[in-house]
C-alpha cells in the first residue's frame, strides 16, 4: 500500500529546472533516503511534497487522495485543501524553526490546539508523552533559545509528531548541528523508523541512509539517477554518477 506516489513532477525556478520529472512511491512504514549533491533538487522535492512549493506539472497521490499539479498551479486546488493535507505530513527543517516566542511545550501543542482544535489538556498530555519520547521532559517550560541545536531539533520532531502525521519529511535535519549532537537526532529518527513511521529523509548521513532506510534514491540534476535497496545503492552503485558522488562523500582525508 502506497502512502505517497509522485508521478512525473516538474519544478523550475525561473529558467532553472530543479525537478525534471520525478516519479517515486513510498510505502506505508517505509523509510526512504534521498541523497545527492547540493543543488540536485532533493530539498525542493520535499518542499513540493508538502506543497510549500508548487510543481508546474505532475501528479501526487497521498493516502489515496490525488492531486494534479496542473490544477494546483492554476489555483484550482483550494488553499484549505492544501492546509488539510499538510496536517497529515510532518516536516522537520534543517534550521529547526522552533517558534521563539513560545516555550517548548507551547511549541508542541500549538498546532494540535489551534489547527485541529484538540482540547488543551489533551494536547498537553500528548505533548508530555512526546517530550518524554524525545528525552526532553525536563525542558517543557524552557524557551527554545536556551536549548542546544540537538535539543531544538528533537523538539521540532516532537512538534511535527504532535499532529499525528502519516508521513514525516526530514530535510537535512542534522546539517546545521554540531557534530556531537548529530547522534542524538539520528537515534531518535532510527527509533521512529523502528516504530513503523513512514519517512522521507533527505540526508548527507550515509550511515543513516545505509543502516536505517529501506531504500535510497540518488538524485542527480533534478532526476532520480538510481534507486533501490539502501545496501545495493550505497554498497554497489550501478550508475557512474552515484559511484562518483559516493567516492567524493566517503573518501575524504
Amino acid at each position: 500500500m502506497s502512502e505517497l506516489e509522485l508521478a512525473d513532477l516538474h519544478k523550475s525556478f525561473g529558467s532553472l529546472k530543479v525537478l525534471r520529472g520525478v516519479t517515486l512511491s513510498v510505502h506505508k512504514g517505509e523509510v526512504l533516503s534521498i541523497i545527492g549533491a547540493s543543488g540536485s533538487g532533493k530539498s525542493t522535492l520535499l518542499r513540493c511534497v508538502n506543497l510549500l512549493e508548487t510543481p508546474e506539472s505532475g501528479r501526487m497521490e497521498f493516502f489515496g487522495q490525488s492531486l494534479d499539479f496542473a490544477d494546483v498551479a492554476c489555483g484550482r486546488t483550494r488553499e484549505s485543501d492544501k492546509e488539510r493535507l499538510r496536517t497529515k505530513i510532518g516536516m522537520v527543517f534543517q534550521s529547526f524553526n522552533l517558534w521563539p516566542h513560545l516555550t517548548v511545550l507551547e511549541n508542541v501543542i500549538e498546532a494540535p490546539v489551534h489547527v485541529t482544535g484538540m482540547p488543551k489538556d489533551e494536547a498537553i498530555d500528548t505533548a508530555e508523552k512526546l517530550l518524554a519520547k524525545v528525552g526532553l521532559s525536563e525542558k517543557r517550560n524552557a524557551w527554545p533559545s536556551t536549548l542546544s541545536g540537538g535539543q531544538q531539533q528533537r523538539v521540532a520532531i516532537a512538534r511535527a509528531l504532535a499532529m499525528q502525521p502519516r508521513i514525516m519529511l526530514f530535510d537535512e535535519v542534522t546539517s546545521a548541528l554540531d557534530p556531537e549532537m548529530v547522534g542524538e537526532v539520528l537515534d531518535l529518527m532510527k527509533q521512529l523508523a523502528e516504530e513503523g513511521m513512514t519517512m522521507l529523509v533527505v540526508t548527507h548521513e550515509m550511515g543513516f541512509a545505509r543502516h536505517v532506510s529501506h531504500r535510497t534514491a540518488f538524485f542527480h540534476k533534478g532526476e532520480i539517477a538510481e534507486i533501490g535497496p539502501s545496501r545495493s545503492v550505497l554498497g554497489s552503485p550501478q550508475n557512474p554518477e552515484t559511484q562518483q558522488f559516493l567516492n567524493r562523500v566517503l573518501n575524504h582525508i
Binding site: L85, R86, I89, G90, N97, H114, A160, M163
Partner: peptide, 26 residues
Amino acid sequence: SKGQWESARAVGMSYALMMRRIILPQ
C-alpha cells in the same frame, strides 16, 4: 525568518492563523 513562516505553514496553519499565532507576536 522565512523558516518561521514555513514551519507554521507546514503544520497546516492558514495564513490568518499563522499571522495571529506565530508571525505577528514576534
